[in-house]
Design a protein around this nucleic acid. Structure first.
Lengths: 213, 213
DNA sequence: GCATAATGTATGAACGTTCATTCATGATAG
DNA sequence: CTATCATGAATGAACGTTCATACATTATGC
């Protein structure tokens, strides 16, 4: 009985594992050859699995790439859950808001979140017209929980600092700053300084809210 | 004699024209289908020229795309010549520096410089591993004359404002801000507000240099 | 408890299509 | 007549997809 269920579960795990392996392999291939160079043959070679496997699990190659884009987005969003879930409880004090932004910067430029793989893939997906049809919240950061989080921090800080400009604009400036620094990383991953990036963000928030940074 | 040279020139013009037509057609195809969807057949259809023409003028399709990337970069750089050439003369007063930055913002988000075509192509090229081998100054903005220009403006303004942070960091923040807003345009070209983008830049520079914005 | 059918998963050769490129031929200008 | 430019059918490599086949696991009948 127990062994029967275990075997069933094991079977499921194996299948899911292969699915995962295919996604990983596809990511690696895109990393090296771009979306245009991501062929079934290369993915097969990279994964070590059989050729038919891709269509068995994903119906088509295009769908595989689509699913990878969704997968990556989910992974990225999960990285923010720790921040945004706390944010839902409400950002009350400006000190709290400042600390949250600071933590945001450090997370956003950490190796776990921003690395060659994530950067290359994000930029590769953004360039594909078909993948932009996934809708808002995928591949891009505007209109996401992250954006809301930054916005609420800016609102609190603007109010506390005496209105030093529209909080919406400040939030957008910070979001854009992050995006721009990601772009810089993508273009020069080896020369990029994570610490330097955080400092640039701090320098900017200090200019907006000198009392809190 | 004169007519002979003229005819020769006309012939040359025709050839160059076809070259130009091919580049334009390739840009349009990439715009709609991405680099991965830019096939000879589609480029041929778009251009109205013959199939062999591409290899005649560009040897290979990859080279055509490479040349297009170079062509676009040159066009973009030319758009900045008016600013950077004046900048070479030297930015002396902080008022001058502030005016230059303001002009920079307005140019950078003008229809002529930032449009669906330029944005899509820039992002498409950035995503191609092969094209990143073009070297610094292509496809990306760091280490360009534009960057130098912003840097020199920030130096003057920082000095005049009493040191409110490292001018290098401020310059990098402004560059990143521009890049990030381009990204925003690329993701939402129809919802993007050019005026709003300029205001976000102004809001940020005002935070850095309240006396001059 | 054991044989047998049904199901889910995996394989890779084969298929038709599309790809970039080549080249024999034609057109045109000097 | 020679040189240059233009053409598009022909070519073979590479592409994504399909499918007959095989195997392992689960379900059913007795």
């Amino acid at each position: 009985m127990a062994s029967a269920e275990e075997a069933k579960k094991k079977r499921k795990v194996d299948k899911d594992l292969h699915r995962e392996v295919l996604l990983e392999a596809t990511a690696s291939v895109i990393l090296r050859h771009g979306v245009s160079g991501a062929t079934i043959s290369r993915i097969q070679e990279e994964s070590g699995l059989s050729r038919g496997m891709i269509n068995l699990h994903f119906q088509s190659k295009d769908n595989l790439i689509r699913e990878l884009a969704i997968h990556m987005t989910r992974q990225y969003n999960d990285a923010w859950q720790s921040f945004t879930s706390q944010a839902a409880a409400g950002v009350s004090t400006p000190e709290d808001a400042a600390a949250r932004l600071q933590a945001l910067f450090e997370t956003d430029f950490s190796e776990a979140v921003l690395n060659k793989r994530s950067a290359r893939l994000t930029f590769a997906f953004r360039a594909e017209p078909d993948l932009q049809a996934l809708g808002p919240g995928y591949i891009e950061t505007r209109g996401t929980a992250l954006h809301d989080h930054v916005r609420s921090c800016c609102r609190v800080l603007c109010e506390a600092s005496g209105t030093r400009g529209d909080p919406e604009k400040v939030a957008m400036a910070i979001m854009s700053l992050l995006e721009g620094l990601w772009t810089d990383f993508h273009a020069h991953p080896d020369e990029f300084s994570r610490i330097g990036a955080v400092e640039i963000c701090r320098t900017t928030t200090r200019a907006f809210f000198p009392d809190y940074f």
